[in-house]
Amino acid sequence: MNCSDVEKWLSAYMDGELIPARKDAVASHLGSCEACRSRLAEWKAVWQALDALPAAAPSPAFRSRLAARIRESERPPVSERFERFLIPVSAAAVALLGFWIGYIAGGRQASSAGIPDSVSPIASTAYLDSFNSVPTASLGDIYLSLNDAIGSEETP
């Protein structure tokens, strides 16, 4: 192994990446060659000089900012969020409208057809049974309260 071979292997030698046989050969050449020793010293100094590049320290907010960014990315886009809100609201509105139209039409039909008054209390009792326990502010609850209001208007 001559000086130019050694020069070629010096970089990997410094990094401990030479196969054992080659590493030994370089080491024994270095033991006897002043020029290659000084070349190695120079390369080591270059490596050392890279210490001048400052190391970084994560700012205390790094983790929380990362977490916030991930959370933000996982929120559905605005249009999707709006749809999610809009669908149940419009469904409820349609249902309410249906009840209201049903109530008007039903009322009109009952009065024009001249159905005897004794029929309606039975009908409303039957409906009341089927809505026996409904959660507050649910559609059923609203229907029941409407029904009560109608009942109290009609009975006196």
Partner: peptide, 27 residues
Amino acid sequence: QKRILDLCTRYVGNPADGEEVAMDVFF
């Protein structure tokens, strides 16, 4: 985070950009 931040900071050359890039890496 320390290793990635070090690498990114030395790569891009300043701590502020380095931290942005490191955050980007984990994201």
